[in-house]
């Protein structure tokens, strides 16, 4: 097997590292827009890494034109595919961030409902589910999901008394052009 000069360019390698570092940092943010930027950086970093995997640049990969070592077309074909995939996913995440903004006036990724619930129960030192003989009806996750769906806009005091706020008016109705989201949670209450 012919051993080609396959040492990748240091600058590109460094670029991959920087792209990944910045991408991971942004991915850990709460705002979907920043997460999206992080994903774009990560995607570009991965594509660059694929390019490096194809070895050094060479002559155009057309047989019979030149005797020099050719570039590896396979890696480039793969990059092309993954660029297209990244493009589609970016479009989707953008749409999702926009929808989130439509519904809530922000695009932050919200906490897991179950997490908030367990955290609250842990503070109260209460059992994780109510006994069927208990008199107080338990608050179901559906109700809670409705209450927590906009935790960023809720003031801290309201968060502490979650079940009570479940039926209250959502804070910033003015910034909600579409009311479609209103109909999901708490349907059983009626």
């Amino acid at each position: 097997m012919i051993v080609l000069d396959n040492v990748p360019s240091g600058a590109l390698l460094l670029a991959v590292g920087v792209l990944f570092a910045a991408g991971v940092y942004l991915l850990l943010e709460r705002s979907l827009t920043r997460v999206l930027l992080g994903f774009v950086l990560l995607g570009n970093g991965a594509n660059l890494a694929l390019l490096l995997a194809g070895g050094r640049a060479g002559a155009p990969p057309i047989t019979g034109v030149t005797d020099e070592p050719m570039s590896d077309p396979l890696a480039q074909a793969m990059i092309l595919t993954s660029i297209v995939i990244t493009l589609a996913l970016v479009a989707f995440v953008l749409a999702m961030a926009y929808r989130s903004w439509q519904l809530h006036g922000h695009d932050e990724v919200q906490d897991d409902v179950e997490d908030t619930r367990i955290a609250r129960l842990a503070v109260q030192d209460a059992p994780s589910y109510a006994d069927s003989d208990a008199e107080e009806p338990a608050v179901t996750l559906d109700v809670e999901a409705e209450a927590t769906r906009d935790e960023v806009a809720l003031p801290d005091t309201a968060k502490a008394t979650l079940p009570d706020t479940a039926k209250g008016t959502p804070p910033d109705t003015a910034t909600r052009p579409a009311a479609a989201g209103e109909r999901t949670g708490g349907g059983e209450d009626a």
Partner: peptide, 30 residues
């Protein structure tokens, strides 16, 4: 809907990350 966007955000972000890891692994394999 509001609930699905909330749940979907987490799902999508996690899945995107796993895809990037996979793509990078493919690059390393190559």
């Amino acid at each position: 809907t509001s609930e699905r966007i909330r749940a979907g955000s987490v799902y999508v972000v996690v899945a995107l990350l796993s895809s990037i890891v996979f793509l990078l692994a493919v690059g390393l394999v190559y």
